[in-house]
Design a protein around this nucleic acid. Structure first.
Lengths: 152, 152
DNA sequence: GTGCTATGTTCGTAGTACGAACTAACTGGG
DNA sequence: CCCAGTTAGTTCGTACTACGAACATAGCAC
């Protein structure tokens, strides 16, 4: 079976829903004077500091791309590079004190907006959708680009 | 209720699933020597020609951004600007003969990859997911950035 | 036919993303 | 101890993305 029947429905649904999420993410970022990538960086770093290597793997970027992203984020005071005490080549990228609040506001605003995309669903449908997407995310090892642990 | 319980599950699920879809889309585009935006442009134009205005609305871009995207696509022979016979200010952006095949290959490859994201779901679960995402897409009037009409 | 609006383009700026080439630091074998 | 090879990040050049402001034309309404 695999590729027949309602399959295209799933595919088009996923692609178009992604398009909506991207738009909402961009709108949120803009509201906070961030680019999408900077917003994503903040959301990742809310969880914990990362080395450049891990950060690139998480965001799906080449290291050369990441250097620039972090440079610009440093210039805007969003993050800091801290030396790794155990490895003088490595750095830890960390949120600054000022940007932690910004990151949390951005995160909350983005959650609210994404949540609103699903307002037309009933509570049980939301739960079903969450479970189905959860399976996809788990099976494909989507990195922690957006926290899940602040529920309630 | 609104913001309690498993809500964050839906939000994080949507955001992370989008991240997966974006990655897959980028991988597909790369395989065909396209940028993500050029791939998106081809997918939109597969349906029908668009004027710059409609195209910007569909892709969520300002007109000034679109001019450049179309310029580069023209330079690569992906699309053509045709004069609108009824309005000498307006143009229709159209796929070229050569790029139609490319667009269809890209579309098919992307479908395959996105489909693979959901291989761990049972057929009824896929149908449920398609229905739930369909509701979100419909309620939020997601534009036709990815065709849905080639279903069997 | 003279203002108003709509359709696109141009220009300047900032940011994104990549690969190739590079530097510095760690690591393991001898 | 030392050196070869690996690993962590940066630099550089190129192409592309996206925006707003300012612009030129063409249609439209009165």
């Amino acid at each position: 079976m695999g590729k027949s029947g309602a399959d295209l429905g799933v595919v088009a649904g996923l692609v178009r829903a992604s398009f909506l999420v991207n738009a909402v993410y961009a709108e949120s970022a803009r509201e906070y004077g961030l680019t999408v990538q900077q917003g994503q960086l903040l959301c990742v770093l809310m969880g914990r500091p990362y080395g450049m290597g891990d950060l690139g793997a998480t965001l799906g970027l080449e290291k050369s791309s990441l250097t620039g992203l972090v440079d610009r984020a440093v210039r805007r005071g969003l993050v800091r590079r801290e030396p790794d005490p155990d490895d003088r080549r490595a750095v830890h990228v960390v949120l600054t004190e000022e940007s932690r609040a910004l990151a949390e506001d951005f995160y909350a605003a983005t959650c609210r907006r994404v949540d609103e995309l699903a307002t037309s669903l009933s509570t049980p449908d939301r739960d079903r959708l969450a479970a189905l997407l959860g399976t996809i995310v788990r099976e494909n090892e989507a990195p922690a680009v957006f926290l899940d642990t602040l529920r309630r």
